[in-house]
């Protein structure tokens, strides 16, 4: 490990070269090729690059090792076009099964249908319900959004002004997640097909949702969004960050405005800064998914399908790993477990 670190530093200094062997290798094929029968090959395709997906990767690789499957994990960094390219290449390479988190399920349905003619295809994290995918492993983002909304109400029992921050709204999961938050705060009925335009000011039950700001994954822009919100609405009561990196950026903006603690922050996902914020009290709480199990179960279910065993697929084609609330009381326990899954040392968490 020591040596590898030195090597990495050296390569960083050189600044050039293709770092094939360094860092997180995306292809983790087991080494014992050719010893026994041919292992089934499956692929786990994410919708982007994030630490969230690293946890899922750990799960997928663990399942592969446990079940004797070869898995490759792919994280497209160039959006929907790159995801499409990766999926097509995988089919060309002839993998036996693919688990994918479609970036834009509504418009990718046709692609998913095409692919599933050639390989066993399931979805995870974000579903394409109208497609011919075999099963969906994940959670209901609308439901998780409503859970997040509950946290907001908990933090602001007497109502207040709220702004929502999110990377982008093109993705189905982010739309549903945001809609869940809004519907829960406003006390609406359960209806995942609602959609409020991002610029609209919505109010009800003493709460006023000022709008939703997107940043297209540009962190500097994400922070600017939070700063501009504080400029424009000095009386804001809560800021909700729905993509993993949003809450930390909100915290940065608050710190600069010296408003830490005055404005409630409600997070989503498990960025270390968000978890640290919960410990410190600057973040009220967060909703976490179970990416480890997304990864593990996706590979497991693919293996079962390839072996012809469809017994574990439920009637509604939905294997659910519900989201969890993380508040001050359970944050340390959750963080320790997460680090264990990531194989990292526990960072300072006092």
């Amino acid at each position: 490990m020591r040596f590898q670190n030195v090597l990495k530093s050296g390569l960083f200094l050189a600044g050039f070269g293709l770092l094939v062997s360094c860092g997180q290798s995306n292809n983790s094929q087991s080494g014992d090729e050719g010893t026994g029968e041919k292992k089934p090959r499956v692929a786990f395709v994410t919708n982007g690059v994030a630490s969230f997906w690293t946890v899922a990767q750990t799960g997928a690789e663990k399942a592969a090792a446990d079940l004797g499957v070869e898995v490759s994990v792919h994280m497209p960094s160039g959006g929907i076009t790159e995801q499409k390219r990766i999926l097509e290449d995988l089919v060309t390479r002839g993998v036996d099964g693919i688990a994918v988190s479609p970036i834009d399920p509504k418009n990718q349905t046709e692609l998913v249908n095409q692919l599933s003619e050639h390989t066993k295809l399931i979805t995870h994290d974000s579903d394409a319900p109208t497609s011919s995918r075999l099963v969906y492993v994940g959670m209901d983002n609308y439901k998780a959004g409503r859970m997040c909304g509950e946290l907001v109400k908990e933090a602001l029992p007497d109502g207040g002004k709220i702004m929502i921050f999110i990377g982008r709204l093109e993705q189905d999961n982010s739309r549903r997640r945001r809609q869940g938050v809004i519907d829960e705060i406003l006390g609406r009925d359960y209806n995942p097909t609602n959609f409020d335009p991002p610029g609209a000011v919505l109010s009800g039950g003493g709460y006023e949702i000022l709008g939703t700001l997107t940043d297209q994954f540009d962190q500097v822009k994400g922070k600017a969004n939070a700063e501009d919100t504080l400029s424009r609405h000095p009386d804001i009561s809560a800021m909700v960050g729905l993509f993993a990196y949003n809450p930390p950026l909100i915290l940065e903006a608050l710190e600069q405005a010296k408003k830490i603690g005055q404005v409630k922050v409600i997070a989503f996902d498990e960025d270390p800064a968000s978890l640290q914020g919960i410990i410190d009290g600057s973040v009220h709480g967060t909703i976490v998914q179970n990416p480890y199990m997304y990864g593990y179960r996706s590979v497991q279910v693919l293996k079962e399908i390839i072996d012809g065993d469809l017994s574990s697929i439920p009637e509604n084609k939905f294997i659910e790993y519900p989201a969890k609330y993380i508040r001050k009381d359970n944050v340390k326990e959750f963080w320790a477990d997460l680090n264990e899954k990531l194989g990292e040392d526990s960072p300072a968490s006092n």
Partner: peptide
């Protein structure tokens, strides 16, 4: 193309930050 690729390589595509 190269510098971003190299960065993604040596960081293992992980978010980098200073924490607290």
């Amino acid at each position: 193309l190269m510098y971003r690729g190299v960065t993604r390589g040596f960081t293992g595509d992980q978010t980098q930050g200073f924490g607290s």
